[in-house]
Amino acid sequence: MGLHPPHRRAFGLIIGLLLLAFGAAAAETSDRVKVDTAFIELHTGPGAGYPIFHVVDRGDWVRIIERRTDWFRVETTDGKEGWVSKAQMEQTVQPNGEPTRFDDPSLEDFTGRNWEMGALYGVLDDVDLISLYGGYALMEKLTAELWVQQALGKFSSSYLVDFSLVHQAFPEWRVSPFVAIGGGIIHTETSATLVESSDSTDETLHAGIGVRGYLTRRFMLRAEYKEYVVLTTREENEEIEKWQLGVAFFF
C-alpha cells in the first residue's frame, strides 16, 4: 500500500533535505591537506588497533574522504586509501599554508543550530508509528517543522502530514523542554477485508510537549507527546494521542 501523492511529496522533501544535510557535512571534510610532520600513518581501519600499512611523508598531499569520530579516511596521491587519527591530521596544513584544525560540534552548535532532521518511533492510539521530520529555526526560540508519519494498524493504516511551530524556552540547556502547536491532514485507509471499509482524509489540529537532549557531536535525542483533534465530517470530532522517541541530526 503506497503513500498518496501529498504524502509522497512531503516524504520526498524531507529525504532530500536529509541527503543535503549529510552532503553538506561531508563537504566540510572533503579537502586536500599537506603533511607537515615527518610522516603520518595510514591504518586499515578507523582505530589504533588496526594495523599500519603505509606512511605518507612530509610534503605529500592527501585528500580527506570522510570522518568517523576522531579518525579520517584519506586518499594519497598514488591512490592508497587508509585511516589517519585526528591528532596526526592536525599535523597537516591547508593549501594556503594554514594549520589544519577540526572544530568538533559542541553544545554551542546545538544551541545555535539552524536545521534539524530526525526519525522517531512511537505509538498513535496504540498503533505503531514511524515519523520523519525536518525543522528550521525561525529565531532562537522558535522552530518551524514539517512531519511525515505512518501508522500501521491491524485493520487500517494512517498517513499524517503535519506542520508545527515549536517554542523552546531554554534553548541553551543541554536538556531543553519545548511546546508545539500546529495542524495538518490525516489519511486513513481501512482494510479491504472489512465489510464496511472506507477511506477518509481529514484535517487535524495538535498541541504537544516534549524535550530535546544534546547527545554528542551533531546528534540529539527527542521525546514528545502530542494530542490531536481530527476534524471529521461526522457529528463529533475525534481525539487521538501520540507518544514518540527518536534521534535527530542538526546543523
Rank of each mutant, 00 (worst) to 15 (best):
H4R: 12
P6W: 15
R8D: 14
R9Y: 15
A10F: 06
I14M: 10
G16A: 05
V35D: 03
P46Y: 04
G47F: 06
A48K: 11
G49C: 00
Y50D: 09
Y50L: 00
Y50S: 11
R58F: 10
D60M: 11
V62E: 02
R63M: 09
E66T: 12
T69W: 11
D70K: 13
F72D: 00
E75R: 15
T77A: 06
W83L: 00
S85T: 10
K86N: 07
K86E: 15
Q94H: 13
P99R: 08
P99V: 04
P99L: 08
F102R: 10
E108I: 14
F110L: 02
F110A: 05
N114V: 04
A119Y: 07
L120A: 04
Y121K: 15
Y121N: 03
D125A: 07
I130G: 10
I130N: 07
S131L: 07
G134W: 02
G135N: 09
A137W: 05
L138F: 07
L142W: 07
L142R: 02
V148G: 08
A151Y: 04
S156W: 12
L165V: 13
L165N: 03
V166R: 13
S176G: 01
S176R: 05
A180K: 14
G183Y: 03
G183I: 04
H187F: 06
T193F: 10
T193Y: 07
S198F: 12
L205D: 11
A207W: 15
R212T: 11
L215Y: 15
F219L: 14
M220Y: 08
M220G: 14
Y225K: 05
R234Y: 14
E236S: 13
K242H: 12
L245W: 08
A248V: 03
F249Y: 15
